[in-house]
Design a protein around this nucleic acid. Structure first.
Lengths: 132, 132
DNA sequence: CTACTTGCAAACTGTTTGCAGTATA
DNA sequence: TATACTGCAAACAGTTTGCAAGTAG
């Protein structure tokens, strides 16, 4: 086996996730497969897998999240529900670098806003209030 | 007085900083003006000032940094010296949003790379090695 | 008098690490 | 048999908070 049983299951869990879970959530999901797995093991392996390029780490102030999609793409975090979504609607090809003082290794673009669901809920809440 | 003495001095310190210091560094700098100021006060006031739009907070995994420049601009962190620099060399005007599902509130672009100084030092180190 | 602010210490959160035991090549 | 990995608990770093005392309007 290439990877330890635990590492395999952690990778599998991230690959099966369509959201962008943090270590804690991943730990809870992996526990369904390995009930006694420790959070430290999850952290250690997420670090390993991210460094190895198997998964992508996204930095957030309230904890890093992980992404099965490893090619460069943008993310948007909903300020209301705090969920993170892929955001492929920004044309990165047109980015113009006027300067080359830096040896650029990576670029990360993170947006914040309100997702469709929360926009809808806001409208409904507002209507409910009005009717009263 | 609009702001407390401590708050004034903290703001002043950030406005006088040409780098992008974190709370700890700002605390050390403010201590030169108010020797017994506590780190908690610095944190509380940085939060206040950032929420109030007096200064800008930049999220980093190893701790938030603060910027006297509050208009939207990009940052680049040097992977070698860990310093953060303003990066105004990206033409943000040309960013094309193909989608408007989200109600976008903010966009932050963070680059990583090697700064001029560290590129230079790398070359010198390499030459030194070769000469041996 | 009231609301706000401070310094201090303790608490909190996400993450890492030391260790002794276990699994793997 | 040597190396890598695990679970556990303790440690760690950045940040926040409860509190009693102090300050400003």
């Amino acid at each position: 086996m290439n990877y330890s049983f635990q590492r395999e299951k952690i990778l599998e869990t991230v690959l099966d996730s369509c959201d962008h879970p943090n270590a804690y959530i991943i730990h809870k999901r992996v526990q369904k497969k390995i009930p006694n797995i420790s959070l430290a093991t999850v952290y250690r392996n997420l670090n390993f897998l991210a460094n190895n390029g198997d998964i992508l780490r996204i930095n957030y102030a309230d904890g890093d999240r992980f992404d099965k999609t490893i090619y460069p793409h943008c993310h948007i975090r909903c300020l209301e529900c705090n969920n993170v979504f892929d955001f492929n609607n920004l044309d990165l090809q047109n980015l113009n670098f006027i300067d080359n003082s830096y040896d650029i290794k990576s670029i990360s673009i993170n947006l914040e806003g309100i997702c469709k669901n929360c926009q809808k809920r806001r409208r409904e809440d507002l209507n409910g209030t009005k009717r009263k």
